[in-house]
Simulated assay, not measured.
Amino acid sequence: MQRLTWPGTNWQESVTQTIADYYQLTKPRLILLFLITTAAAMWVAAKGQVDGVLVLATLTGGALAAGSANTINCLYDRDIDYVMERTRHRPLPSGRIQPWQALVFAIALAIISFTLLATVANLLSACLAMSGIAAYFFVYTAWLKRSSTQNIVIGGAAGAIPPLVGWAAVTGDLSLAAWAMFAIVFVWTPPHFWPLAMMIQEDYAKVGVPMMPVVDGDDSTAKQMMFYTVLLVPTSLLLVYPLHASGGVYGAIALVLGGMFIQKVWQLNQSPADKTMARSVFKFSILYMMLLCAGMGLDSLPLTQNLVAQGSQVLQMLVLGA
């Protein structure tokens, strides 16, 4: 007996696959971290009292801008993506999406992002989001990625723009605290990305991309990671002193997380060629940024500030009473 099929089944599967392909072009896992840093900046800027509509619009606009930048990255890198086993089956190198379609998609995302941010937030946040797209493509993807071992260091500035977008959306300007958050993400990027590069350096070597582990080796890369990880601790504390944008709760969280990050990278330095250890550092770097941003948000809440103030008063009374 012939099996009956629903007339629209193949068409529905095709549409679903196409949607999934376009979604994959935006690299959604990368976008999540960008949104976390954006949200943290908004919470700190607004002292824990952010308008819900503004948050939704800013995060949506930021996600669209990041998706546009990632799509352009996929479009430009489709030649090397075809060679690397890890990326060969992406929508562009596999031929499921044509280059012109990806370009139109990226432009559409950028236009919607700019319009949304300029309308609901302000022009500064919209322009910053567009500058992030430009920096990611022109500085990192087209210029540095295939020409310098410092590609991820200098190019990391593009990934540090989302906190500026969040801060500008709330305040309409960029204070020193906003730039401190930019610096945190900027310094965090090398010890976050280089472990991944250590894990897949054979792929990068195959296509001639001069990532640090490929050119300078695992040992040198691990040592440079330690430099940036140690530098990250005082950088993360700038929000506490001298800027006073965050308080003791965030400061304590930053110190603990920074110590754990240094320990992880120190362990990698003992066995730089250990891919399992590199994977562990990479995963922890993601957790570090998520928890650090959560610490910023927690510290900014009025409830937290009130509890800290009350605790300080009780401590003073105990000290004076003694």
Rank of each mutant, 00 (worst) to 15 (best):
S148D: 09
V187N: 04
D203P: 09
V44E: 06
Y288F: 15
F186Q: 09
A157L: 10
A134E: 06
S220P: 05
N306T: 13
V215C: 10
H192P: 03
V153S: 13
S312G: 11
T16E: 13
S125F: 03
T119E: 08
D216L: 14
W143Q: 04
A158T: 02
G321S: 13
L117M: 04
F137K: 01
A134G: 04
A160F: 00
I97Q: 10
L243E: 04
V207F: 11
R78M: 13
G132K: 00
Y288S: 03
A158E: 00
V281W: 02
L239G: 05
L33W: 06
L32R: 13
A69S: 10
G321Y: 14
I152M: 13
G248C: 09
G258L: 01
F114I: 15
Q305F: 08
A197V: 05
Y23Q: 11
D79V: 14
G247I: 13
M296R: 08
V44M: 10
Q270C: 11
V170N: 02
V215Y: 07
D203Y: 10
F105W: 00
F138Q: 06
S68P: 10
L231S: 01
C74V: 09
P7V: 05
A254G: 01
N73P: 08
Y241F: 12
A134P: 01
Q2R: 13
G208N: 05
F34P: 04
V185Q: 14
A252K: 09
I161T: 05
V230A: 09
D203T: 07
N122K: 00
S14F: 07
V153I: 15
A40V: 05
T304V: 08
A180C: 03
T304C: 02
A135E: 12
Y23V: 15
S94A: 15
S14G: 12
Y136K: 03
K283F: 13
Y288C: 02
M211R: 05
A183H: 03
L56F: 12
T141R: 02
P195N: 12
Q313D: 13
E202H: 10
A322I: 15
R279I: 08
A66E: 00
